[in-house]
C-alpha cells in the first residue's frame, strides 16, 4: 500500500529470539530509563511560590486605561463590543456633565462597562479595535471563583488605579 508519508514503520512480527523471550534485558533497560528520570530536572512549577514566565505576546485579563492626568480614556464608542467574536463586552454610554472633565477625557464615557470573562476567548480584537487606546490586555489571568457572576468584571475591576489620586 502506498503510504502518505514515509514516517510509517511496519510492525515487526518475527518470532522473538531467546534473549527477547527472557524479558530480563528489556526489564533492566526499562529500569535504567526510570532511574535516569529519577535524577532529571523536574518539570513541575511549584505554583504559588514559582510562576511560569509569560510569553511577550500573552493576552490576559483586560484593563481599562487612563490618560496621564488620570482621566478614563474610554469614550463608549462600542467598537470593542462589535469586534468581540464572543460577544463578551457590554457597555452603556453617558454624557459627560460639566465639572466632570477631570474624570473623563471625552465628552461621552462608559457609565457601565462589563466583560464576561467566561465568554471571553482572549483573542485581543478589542485591544486592536479601540481607537482611544483604552482597552489593554494585561499579563494576569482570571482567578477562580465560586459563582458565575464573579466572572463578570465591571468597571471597578477593570480600571487601572488613578495615577493622580494615588499620589
Amino acid at each position: 500500500m502506498q503510504t502518505l508519508t514515509n514516517r510509517a514503520k511496519p510492525v515487526d512480527r518475527s518470532p522473538m529470539t531467546f534473549m527477547e523471550k527472557m524479558y530480563l534485558p528489556a526489564i533492566f533497560t526499562g529500569m535504567g530509563i526510570t532511574l535516569k528520570h529519577l535524577f532529571r530536572r523536574k518539570a513541575t512549577v511549584a505554583f504559588p511560590e514559582q510562576k511560569r514566565q509569560f510569553s511577550p505576546v500573552f493576552r490576559g485579563l483586560h484593563v481599562l486605561n487612563r490618560d496621564e492626568e488620570g482621566r478614563e480614556r474610554c469614550t463608549a464608542c462600542g467598537l470593542c463590543a462589535v469586534a468581540c467574536p464572543a460577544e463578551a463586552i457590554t457597555m452603556e454610554a453617558a454624557e459627560r456633565k460639566p465639572g466632570e472633565e477631570h474624570l473623563y477625557r471625552e465628552e461621552k464615557y462608559a457609565a457601565r462597562y462589563e466583560i464576561n470573562m467566561l465568554r471571553c476567548i482572549f483573542c485581543g480584537f478589542c485591544e486592536e479595535a479601540c481607537p482611544k487606546d483604552a482597552v489593554y490586555m494585561s499579563e494576569t489571568f482570571a482567578p477562580a471563583n465560586y459563582q458565575r457572576k464573579g466572572f463578570i468584571y465591571g468597571k471597578q475591576d477593570l480600571l487601572i488605579p488613578n495615577p493622580k489620586a494615588d499620589k
Binding site: 528520570h37 529519577l38 532529571r40 518539570a43 511549584a46
Partner: peptide, 13 residues
Amino acid sequence: KVAAWIQDRLGPN
C-alpha cells in the same frame, strides 16, 4: 516521592 521523581514531578511537598 519515587513515583513523582521517576515521572519528572516533585511529589508531595
